[in-house]
Amino acid sequence: MVRPVGILALQGNFSQHAAMLLHLGYAPIMVRYPKDLEACRALIIPGGESTTMSKQIDRNGLRAPIKDFGKKNPIMGTCAGMILLSNSKNGKNMDPLNIMDFTVDRNAWGRQVYSFTDTLKLHFDKRKQFKGTFIRAPKINQIGKQIKVLAEYNGEPVMLKNSKHLVCSFHPEIGKDTRIHQFFLKNLHD
């Protein structure tokens, strides 16, 4: 059975998420219109520019459909996608979707010259470390009661989940390690 998984394809790195889904045997659906969500069992909001995506979500009537989708289906947000799933109020020039109960500081690791890769431990798979790619990454600050931390880096939480959704401040779509995508998608195996 091919399981269709949507990727919000307004702006950003949707193509590398699609390549990873194909590799894992899922059918990626590029989501640009509300009707594209109807066929999806899950949604990925990729990295890119959160200001750009936030404006395009509103211009193209996607805010309410994505929020409704998230009530029943799992969503994964990476980097800008994580910012969009948060309920940060300080989102200067952008409006998060308020789907998960945590807040972020955007670009808190610094400008591009401070972007980096480093290994981190995944709490759900301690056999091998994960190489995280942090590009102008956000930092997580407040975390709600229902949220569980799945990975930390230098004592900072960098990956969170609640009962349905998953976010990380780095880019699991960069590289060949598919464990984070697999962890997210395992909910779809009925």
Binding site: A9, L10, Q11, G12, N13, F14, S15, Q16, G47, G48, E49, T52, C79, A80, Q112, V113, Y114, S115, F116, T117, D118, T133, I135, R136, H171, I174
Partner: peptide, 20 residues
């Protein structure tokens, strides 16, 4: 920690795709 590697540089280029 590795900063300024080719991979990290291309990473930002990947994030700008689909944009202006």
């Amino acid at each position: 920690m590795a900063k300024g590697t080719f991979e990290v540089k291309v990473g930002l280029a990947e994030m700008l795709k689909g944009g202006v």
